[in-house]
């Protein structure tokens, strides 16, 4: 009984529409920013800037639209584990790719 009540007291956080409006505006502004940045001559930095803006936008979506900022540690850890596995797999594939020709010069 008491355990039951304890659990129901930790009601989930309802994110307010104000925050959704704010985040949507930020996402649209970032879209304009990434288009503008692609017309600048930045050399190799063009790709870096484009990806940095995309990562920032994705973080906003995950944290606020997908409520991870307000979620339990289990949920945060799940997202973190997914990100870690993704980066490990891509990173190891790319390290194989860039080191294929080593020693053959």
């Amino acid at each position: 009984m008491s355990a039951h009540e304890e659990h129901s007291s930790e009601e989930q956080h309802i994110v307010s529409p104000k925050i959704y409006v704010l985040i949507a505006t930020a996402l649209l502004l970032c879209t304009a920013l990434t288009v503008a940045a692609s017309y600048l001559e930045l050399g190799p930095w063009n790709a870096v800037v484009a990806l940095a803006i995309a990562v920032f936008k994705a973080s906003l979506v995950v944290l606020f639209f997908m409520h991870i900022k307000y979620s339990s540690k289990l949920m945060k850890l799940t997202v973190g584990a997914g990100l870690f596995t993704f980066l490990t797999l891509v990173g190891m594939s790319m390290s194989d790719y860039i080191s294929r020709a080593w020693g053959s010069f």
Partner: peptide, 14 residues
Amino acid sequence: WIFLFPLLYLISRH
């Protein structure tokens, strides 16, 4: 899509 858009549409537009 947030990743597809810059990777496919925005390669060195300048």
